[in-house]
Simulated assay, not measured.
Amino acid sequence: MDLLRFKKKISFRNLIANLITIVRHTKKLIEILDQHNVHIIYTNDQSAQLYGIILKLVTGKKLVWHVRDNQRFRFISFLFCLGSDKILCVSKHILNQIPFKNRAELVYNGINTDFWKPDSILNSRTKHKLGLDENVILIGHVGQIIPWKRHDLFLRIAQETVESGFENVHFLILGDDRFNEFPECLDYLVSMVESSGLNKYVTFLGYEADIRPWLQTIDIFLHLANNEPFGRIAIEAMAFEKPVICFAEGGPNEVVKNNASGYLIPSDKPSEVTEKLSFLISNSNLRREMGISGRNIVKANFSLGNLKRINAVMLEIYEEYFN
């Protein structure tokens, strides 16, 4: 069994409650649009796009949809695209799922590389805070504790790594179930740790508002999500000069450069993650070289400059609106 067996619980009562909420919020949003003389509606996830489509139909405003999610339902995606004047996609992986290519454009996420960078000031949260010696290799995983983030696979790799003879390692999980959608997941992961005897090798840190000190502290970053739309956390880890191991699919496949800033592993060969992880654990110079390469990649391709294109799109739509 794995985390993917857990499904979000949906009830008729919740559906009715959601419909009432949509009606109430839509009325309020229409008031806000009129009050502030808004000409362009910008949405950045599927829930927000539902409101965007309704508001466009009611008010006739221009609509820009910034797509950050996998499109699981083709018909809904078709309707969302049909109602959008412009579609921005965070990765080629997402762009390939969009039916209206003539309205769509690739705009990668960008981060402030001066904010996300190695900094000795952040060393206040060292490995000693976890009760670890500084020479322990710390492997990190950051993300909501939800099924498709695959924390269970992270723990299996932890077990394989320890059983292969690496005892000078520790595995750190940052994150929680932010919206309380999958309460069973954390219990399942904790039981995995206990049943496999990994208690002294794994720490669940929970939610941290500022993860930079921990990205500074870890030595290797694992990102094992299924078909991640983009994987912002991967570029944040790379900005901190950490080698990243992820699957060769989704957005991370476009972010990580194989054998340069980390490793891209076929998703049907998770055992190779353990092999590459073991290799990095044993090679500090390679970790350092990959880390430097990763930061250079982020500065060249995923900086705040990408956000300027979003502003330019807004200006283009605005000018079109008045012409």
Score class of each variant (00 low, 15 high):
residue 251 G to Q: 08
residue 9 K to R: 14
residue 281 I to M: 01
residue 78 F to P: 08
residue 222 L to P: 02
residue 43 T to C: 09
residue 111 I to P: 03
residue 169 V to P: 00
residue 52 G to I: 10
residue 102 N to Q: 06
residue 154 F to N: 02
residue 71 Q to M: 13
residue 216 Q to H: 05
residue 318 Y to P: 02
residue 295 R to K: 12
residue 164 S to W: 00
residue 299 K to G: 06
residue 67 V to R: 00
residue 102 N to W: 06
residue 224 L to T: 06
residue 1 M to I: 13
residue 269 K to A: 15
residue 191 S to N: 15
residue 247 F to S: 02
residue 255 V to T: 11
residue 7 K to H: 15
residue 135 N to C: 03
residue 37 N to H: 02
residue 267 S to H: 15
residue 300 A to E: 15
residue 243 P to G: 10
residue 78 F to L: 09
residue 141 H to Y: 11
residue 66 H to L: 04
residue 271 S to E: 15
residue 283 N to S: 11
residue 158 A to Y: 01
residue 35 Q to G: 02
residue 179 F to W: 07
residue 32 I to E: 10
residue 43 T to L: 05
residue 197 G to C: 01
residue 193 V to I: 05
residue 37 N to G: 04
residue 155 L to T: 07
residue 300 A to S: 14
residue 171 F to K: 01
residue 1 M to Y: 09
residue 93 H to W: 11
residue 89 C to N: 07
residue 285 N to P: 07
residue 9 K to P: 00
residue 243 P to L: 06
residue 176 D to M: 03
residue 311 N to P: 08
residue 70 N to Y: 13
residue 192 M to N: 02
residue 221 F to A: 01
residue 313 V to W: 05
residue 273 V to F: 12
residue 129 K to C: 15
residue 262 G to Q: 05
residue 94 I to G: 10
residue 13 R to S: 14
residue 256 V to Y: 03
residue 127 K to M: 04
residue 133 D to R: 03
residue 141 H to N: 14
residue 159 Q to Y: 15
residue 114 D to A: 03
residue 245 I to N: 05
residue 26 T to N: 00
residue 101 K to T: 04
residue 107 V to Y: 12
residue 6 F to Q: 09
residue 239 A to T: 11
residue 236 E to Y: 08
residue 23 V to E: 03
residue 152 D to L: 03
residue 165 G to I: 04
residue 203 T to Y: 02
residue 210 D to L: 03
residue 285 N to Q: 13
residue 74 R to T: 08
residue 145 I to P: 05
